[in-house]
Nucleic acid binder design. Structure first.
Lengths: 150, 150
DNA sequence: ATAATGTCTATTTTATCGATAGGGATTGAT
DNA sequence: ATCAATCCCTATCGATAAAATAGACATTAT
């Protein structure tokens, strides 16, 4: 199961965004530097997330990005879909196959369908708020663990 | 969620193999022709499945491939793993990242882990015997449906 | 007017996928 | 012993997609 860099960056960017108080914006540059994400690449990603209605932006001096909606209302399925397109691949073997004899396998199709549904249900369940909390808690745990050894 | 051609061909090949009585072998050539799968490509796939212990082979004239074990004991997770490598991607962001600032996100890692586990549990549940039965039943249903319209 | 920001389109680079090529090894039949 | 049918193995190609970079444009606070 592979998550594209783009999707990973996108998720991380949104988790970052969720840390800011509602209405407060942040800059691509900071996000890129603090998270080690290529700035130009990140621009594209944030733009897509904006066009998907997940982020909003303010241009010009002092501008930046901010969440377009409350993080509780943003499901990770929506995030991934915004970045990678439709989650479920529809037909496993497309109708107009080039190879003459090629035929779809109903069994394989069913296997893929069931897997896709399972994935989708998990991605539907996790909201950005959940992810942000998880991130914060993990960081906190780590911090305490380090403290313990000082 | 994308299934590679290779994995799809592999699954279809094994479903095909499961139709033969135990101990009976089939030839790459027939499988390729009847299922519209590129023969040379299929060779590679069957070889991998053989090295994974899922298929057995007999060389020389009259040789061919056959299932290495009873289809009830072959889980689709094993099939996919044999063809595509480890299902779960291990670390989402590897430890020794090149980019200095780059850091793994525990939240993203967890999301990926949970999704992978869900996939794996489904793929563990479906055995080759299940797939073969499903395929046969679907074909049967289709046949009856066609008959109905004659 | 200027500098700081996001917006857009194009291009480059790199990796992966799907497929093909061409022998080599083994075996049954004659 | 020879031949043909089969699997076995390695290399390579071409197309596509992923990842990243480049450069100019648009907007806005100061």
């Amino acid at each position: 199961m592979r998550l594209s860099k783009k999707a990973e960056y996108g998720l991380r960017a949104l988790i970052y965004a969720a840390r800011f108080p509602e209405g407060t914006s942040f800059q691509i540059k900071d996000l890129a530097e603090k998270n080690g994400i290529p700035k130009k690449f990140l621009e594209l990603i944030l733009l897509e997330l904006k066009n998907a209605g997940i982020l909003r932006s303010r241009r010009g001096v002092g501008g930046g990005y901010l969440l377009g909606r409350r993080p509780e209302t943003i499901r990770s399925s929506e995030i991934i879909r915004a970045i990678e397109g439709p989650l479920t691949n529809g037909a496993v073997v497309k109708e107009g196959s080039k190879i003459p004899g090629e035929q779809a396998s109903p069994a394989v199709a069913r296997l893929v369908r069931e897997t896709s549904e399972a994935i989708e249900s998990i991605l539907d369940r996790w909201t950005l708020a959940d992810l942000a909390r998880e991130e914060q808690e993990a960081t906190e745990r780590k911090r305490r663990h380090v403290m313990y050894f000082i």
